[in-house]
Amino acid sequence: MSTLAAATTSTGEAVQFWILGTVAVLGALCTILMRRAVHSALCLAGTMIILAVFYLANGAYFLGIVQIVVYTGAIMMLFLFVVMLIGVSAADSLKETIKGQRWLAALCGIGFGVLLIAGIGNASLTEFSGLTRANSGGNVEGLATLIFTKYVFAFEITGALLITAAVGAMVLTHRERTERAKTQRELSEQRIRDGVHLPPLPAPGVYARHNAVDIAGLLPDGSPSELTVNKTLRARGQIRDVSSEALNDLKALEQRSTERLERPTSEEASK
């Protein structure tokens, strides 16, 4: 506790800062450099957990716990839900719409960082008062006293904001059905009128070893039929094609059985 009020921290905190700080920066860099949104979200969650540890080290015990519970527990999971909804495999395209935008953006970022860090370096922050006195009655109690006295109006406004946000999210994502859903009879009548594909779609998988849903069924000539695979898998490009593999397997099997039975091959028999 006493080390919270000093110009230098304890060696333990320094070691913790340099190790975890490096990991936090790496996590942040991975967040902006990973191509898939899921990987970005996981890297960001790691960075947030490390920030929670830093809050605890700085004497903000309540905030450290809230950071883990609210940020990594609720907000990042919300992000992951949305990533799953929108499509996990959707990676960013690397094509630039504005020429040289990426380099200019990186340059702006570096310049901004240098500006910020130089500003902090210029401000002579040498002596830290420390939280020993402020935290003497307990961190949570101190925060509660401030929230319910000095900041009580802001606290009330926050409640209104949260309710507005919840209602807003419902309004934005809720869709009222404006037309009646078609019945099965109407759907089948429409299919016959259009004359596109009357019978049910064929099932995926032909061979017993490969009856998974992501493997297209084979047409009589051995080519895969895209119709047999679910529309979602088709859109994601997750169809596995085994037609050549299966045909090769079959050929090898025939070869082996011929050798074992010492039967003449079909060409010799026809002679």
């Binding site: 800062f17 700080g21 936090a24 902006i32 990186a106 970022g109 901004f112 960082g113 910020l116 902090i120």
Partner: peptide, 12 residues
């Protein structure tokens, strides 16, 4: 300094 670094990474 760490906060400034993380902020500029986020802005980039």
């Amino acid at each position: 300094y760490l906060a400034a670094l993380l902020f500029s990474i986020g802005a980039t």
